[in-house]
Simulated scan of single mutants.
Amino acid sequence: MSECEEATDRELAIDRRRHQRWVLITMIGLRFVTVLPIAVISSFFPQEVERWRPVSEASLYMDIITGVFGSTAILGSIASSQWVINDIGTRHLLCLTVFLLGMSTILFGCLDYTNSWPGFISLSVIIRLVQGFAYGLTDVIVYGLGTAASSEQMGLASGLLELSFAIGGASGPAIGGILHKVGGFGLPLFCDWWSDVGLYDGSGQSLVFVR
């Protein structure tokens, strides 16, 4: 093998490692922000429920909303099985799921404008159904892409992805509480949507060659 070919191979290897690192970093960021919709509302959603119902019932409705989200997230994870990814394509499916997650997050942030309790709780459940399903799809794809991008250090990649999930879940209530005090009900959710879009836009450059 000539020196020119060896230099080309080294450059390709460097580019490949850089590409893998960028995919892993963006997937870590996406996993962090996609868990925020679960966590950010826990600090202020019960207060919104208290506008309509007694204080003693606020935690019950919070549990219902959380349960709806978790149940449909499981269904979303099942739906993102290998045949779905093969039929639609990983990049296209990630685009679709981030779009659904973002739009449902925006709609949930607009619930503050409802003027009746039946409308508020009904829309909350419906939106969380869509949001949970989109989250289940997104989480499986993000985790798969993140670990596949670092196949030589899959244990480290898996640990970093789980760490970002844990940090997002732990910091979500604090972030939601601060943003709620600053801008009201919708601001925490609108900020989460912007972070979703920004990170997906960054990851899109690294997923150009991913089907």
Rank of each mutant, 00 (worst) to 15 (best):
I65D: 01
S77F: 14
S71K: 02
M103V: 15
W117F: 09
L75R: 02
N86L: 06
V55W: 15
I85L: 08
L123M: 10
W83G: 08
T114H: 08
R91M: 00
D87K: 14
V55L: 15
W117Y: 12
S116C: 09
V68H: 04
V84Q: 10
G109R: 03
G76K: 01
T66K: 01
S104I: 01
G76T: 00
A58Q: 03
S59G: 09
S59H: 09
N86Q: 15
N115C: 04
E57G: 02
N115I: 12
L94I: 03
G70S: 15
I121P: 03
L111F: 05
S104V: 01
L111I: 04
R91N: 01
F69K: 00
L100M: 04
T97P: 04
W83N: 11
I78W: 08
L60V: 13
I74N: 12
N115K: 08
S104C: 07
L101I: 08
T90H: 04
D63I: 08
S71Y: 05
L75A: 02
I88Q: 05
L93C: 03
S77Y: 15
L94H: 00
P118I: 07
V55P: 14
Y113E: 13
M103N: 10
N86M: 11
F69W: 03
S116Q: 12
L101H: 10
W117I: 08
T90L: 09
Q82I: 09
I106D: 02
Q82T: 13
E57H: 06
E57T: 07
Y113P: 03
W117Q: 07
G109T: 08
W117T: 11
L93Q: 03
I106T: 06
H92I: 09
W83I: 12
G67F: 05
W117M: 08
C110E: 14
L107I: 10
L111T: 02
L93P: 05
D112A: 14
T114K: 06
S80Q: 12
L75W: 00
F120E: 07
F120S: 08
P118N: 05
I121K: 09
L100T: 01
N86W: 07
G102A: 11
G119E: 12
I78L: 15
S80L: 09
G76A: 06
Y61V: 05
I106V: 09
G89T: 03
I78E: 04
D63C: 07
S56E: 15
F120N: 06
Q82K: 10
C110P: 08
S77H: 14
A58R: 00
Y113I: 12
G109A: 10
M103E: 13
T97K: 04
F99T: 02
Y113W: 12
I74R: 04
S104E: 04
N86V: 06
F120Y: 11
G67R: 10
S80M: 12
C110T: 12
